[in-house]
Amino acid sequence: MHSPLKSAIQRSLAAAILLSLPLAANAQPASEGQDWVDLAVHNFGAPINTMWAEGELSFADDGTMVFCSAREDMAVAPGDPKDLYIANFNPDTGSWDTPVNMGIPINAAPAMDEDPLRMGDDREPWITADGQTIYFKSDRLATTSPRNNNDIFVINKQSDGSWSDPELVGYPISTNEGDEHCPAILQDGETLCFASRRAGGYGGSDIWCASPDGAGGWQDPVNQGPNINTAAEEFHFSQDESGRVYFTSARPGGYGGMDIYSAMQLGVNEWSEASNLGPQVNTAAADMCPALPPGGKTITWFSTRQDNSLGNIDIFWTNKSNINTDN
């Protein structure tokens, strides 16, 4: 991408983040008039996207980004399908610093000699608003029988700035047969939502949510119901400050492949009927895993679309004013 053009696009996204940070208290708001940058869908660009596949991401309130990548030049081990990366937002440059592989043991190396499903696939990180905790899915404890591809793990930032070793988020969140993935925390700061194929759902992966039990564990997860879940695949719940959630679904009636939908929270475990975000975000490709940068004005996701790709699956963003939110 031509550097002046890239700089303009990055500044547009960065402005929404800068205006939400204490460091930017004196920053001037962007013009109310929308130009092509405001109306377009943008590739996130370097240093986040590469020639390899980049995917699921989330943000802390200070702009810190965690995401996953299949890049081979920084993988923890040969043949590792996906690793977790972290990138700090730099308010001086209005962009993200070079991403850092979070390393072993956060990223597990392939262990297919222990079980053929343990491929070293670590992805779908969710960083809490305060930047102190990251949930993610991993196949490091996968079992062929019973077949369980993924479980949810958690790490915490320690006083010296390093991260703790991953701990399994145990039952009733992770189960032996549910293939849990895509963890996320709602705006209340405590409800953990995730996708699971456990019994009692509507089919495929459903979105479930659980509240803390007050003793360091979790209450039984609650299926989020037919306005969210269908017989198709649903996963990756991201909620904005208004209470609206954005998630991925393969339900009929979309634009092709996976699409991103939204719904408004009406109460605890209660949601309005979901609506498709429309053709600005969703395409005939797979458009998946929405995330919300701080500032409240933009939405990000990853897509297999090839019309603006750096060579593989990339992360994209647009202004929320460009999406359909009819519900």
Rank of each mutant, 00 (worst) to 15 (best):
S7H: 12
A15C: 08
I17K: 06
S20I: 05
V41R: 02
N43H: 04
G45E: 11
N49C: 12
M51A: 15
A53R: 13
S58M: 10
V66W: 12
C68S: 09
A70Y: 02
E72L: 12
T98P: 03
I104H: 11
I104E: 14
N107V: 06
N107M: 02
A111I: 00
P116A: 02
P125R: 08
W126V: 05
T128G: 12
I134Y: 12
Y135D: 08
F136I: 04
L141W: 01
N149D: 13
N156T: 12
K157W: 06
D165P: 01
P172L: 09
P172E: 10
N176V: 10
E180Q: 13
E180M: 07
D188W: 04
S196F: 15
Y202W: 15
C209P: 06
P212S: 08
P221C: 11
V222G: 09
Q239G: 04
R251V: 01
G253M: 05
G254I: 01
G254M: 04
G254L: 06
G257S: 14
M258F: 15
I260N: 07
M264T: 07
L266R: 12
P279R: 07
Q280R: 15
A285G: 10
A286T: 10
M288A: 12
A291H: 08
S309C: 09
G311T: 00
N312K: 13
D314F: 06
I315A: 06
N322P: 01
